[in-house]
Write a protein that binds this DNA or RNA. Structure first.
Length: 414
DNA sequence: TATCCACTGGAATATGTGGTCG
DNA sequence: CGACCACATATTCCAGTGGATA
């Protein structure tokens, strides 16, 4: 009997498919890079840097292009003795105010161990610290604020930075902001004065089409996979699926990686269309589960309530009052104080925004009035799996939930 | 066409948490 | 310690809303 068997290596270097991989060459973005490069020219000439605003959906090369150009810029600037270029990269994900972004910038610029805490200081004190740090660094400083739309409508920092010199907050340092956003509407919600300065140069990154994605995937897969393990139709399929959806290279690369990973785990010799299709389903499910994990406890209770209503035979979709009645019981049985109706309503709206719930508007006029009806907007299996892993549902019977759902054919029994 | 139902959702305000500073 | 700060969440209050019906 054979105990050990040689497995087939699928990947040569899987890191090439990862999010943080920085390719030697950026594919399919020649025009954008050309434009982008031109906007950096003043920096090399020793002038005040321009503020630049990049926008485009996720996975269309904004961040990769930025990191690529900035690393070249820093390197090329070293050839000039009178030039001192520093870049600071900050991802603003979850930083929902100017204050938080400022705190994170200060910490980014400070030595390890010298960081400040995220609350407690007056706003102006943090801004002063920021000016001090920027002055200490001096020279030309390019601040990249990725996913800047998280900052919402509190844009005072974006107003202050470009004006720091004329307000005598900065003397030595020349600061330029590079704002990156997924959401073009963000621009419109800015204060007009901020929009003027921040968006003085802007570049749009369009989604990739199928052919572009195919080229990108071919270049990457040549490095990532062992020779000959990809069957012919894998790259075209990943490209086509991603192109149909959002035109995101990120998505196409994730799909390719996941397909390879599945093949590896199954001990298969090659990656086939079949793996890609499975990978897609797995990624979708995982994405739903991820999005549900960072919700608040009352979001989870709300979600549990609706799931329970779905599984235990309530007529779907359900109205708010029905949800609320059940929710009160659920909250009590898990040692939570039930929230007021208005708050539950807010949680329902949040879940709708996240696509986890669906909401239908109904209006029965004088006799019935206007109201919403809610139901789950995502795969029931994914919801039950997530709820099962949560601490708050400890004394709720998620096993019975799943068993009942399976019995009713709402979930596959696998 | 005015009415009226059963909500919705904005705004002001309150509460609780985790922090600085003198 | 007490005064103060930022922020996430809740609560309270209530002016709309849109369409079936009298």
């Amino acid at each position: 009997m054979t105990v050990f068997e040689r497995t087939h290596a699928i990947f040569d270097d899987e890191d090439v498919l990862r999010d943080d991989y920085q390719p030697e060459r950026i594919e399919e973005r020649d025009e954008e890079l050309e434009e982008y490069k031109a906007y950096f020219q003043p920096v090399i000439n020793g002038k005040q840097p321009r503020n630049i605003f990049l926008y485009g959906k996720t996975g269309v090369g904004k961040t990769v292009a930025t990191k690529y150009l900035l690393s070249h810029l820093e390197r090329d600037a070293e050839r000039y003795d009178d030039l001192d270029v520093t870049t600071v990269y900050l991802n603003c994900e979850h930083l929902t105010s100017s204050y938080r972004v400022a705190v994170n910038l200060v910490n980014e610029l400070r030595e390890e161990g010298e960081e400040i805490s995220t609350t407690g200081y007056p706003r102006d004190a943090v801004y002063d610290m920021l000016w001090t740090e920027l002055e200490t660094v001096g020279g030309t400083i390019l601040v990249v604020l990725d996913e800047i739309d998280y900052i919402g409508d509190d844009d005072s920092l974006l107003y202050q930075i470009p004006r720091a010199r004329s307000n005598e907050n900065l003397h030595e340092a020349k600061v330029g902001i590079i704002g990156i956003s997924n959401d073009f509407k963000f621009r419109e919600q800015l204060d007009p004065r901020v929009e003027d300065t921040l968006c003085e140069r802007e570049i749009h990154f369009p989604p990739y089409d199928g052919n572009e994605l195919r080229n990108i995937l071919e270049k990457r897969s040549a490095l990532a996979f062992e020779d000959g393990v990809l069957s012919e139709d894998v790259v075209p399929l990943c490209s086509a699926l991603a192109a149909q959806d959002r035109g995101s290279a990120r998505q196409a690369l994730d799909l390719l990686f996941e397909a390879g990973d599945l093949a590896r785990r199954n001990g298969d010799e090659s990656v086939t269309e079949h793996h890609v299709r499975n990978a897609r389903a797995r990624l979708e499910k995982r994405q739903i589960e991820e999005s549900m994990k960072d919700l608040t406890s009352h979001d989870h209770l709300t979600l549990y309530t609706i799931t329970a209503l779905t599984v235990f035979g309530e007529e779907m979709p359900v109205r708010r009052q029905t949800i609320y009645d059940r929710y009160e019981d659920v909250a009590m049985s898990t040692d939570h104080d039930p929230l007021a109706m208005r708050s539950l309503h807010a949680h329902l709206s949040d879940l709708v925004m996240l696509g986890i719930l669906e909401r239908h508007e109904r209006n029965e006029g004088r006799s019935g009035g206007a109201y919403y009806e809610y139901e789950l907007g995502v795969d029931l299996d994914a919801v039950v799996t997530t709820l099962d892993g949560l601490a708050i549902t400890g004394n709720l019977d998620t096993d019975r939930l799943r068993a009942t759902a399976v019995r009713q054919g709402l979930i596959d029994s696998s």
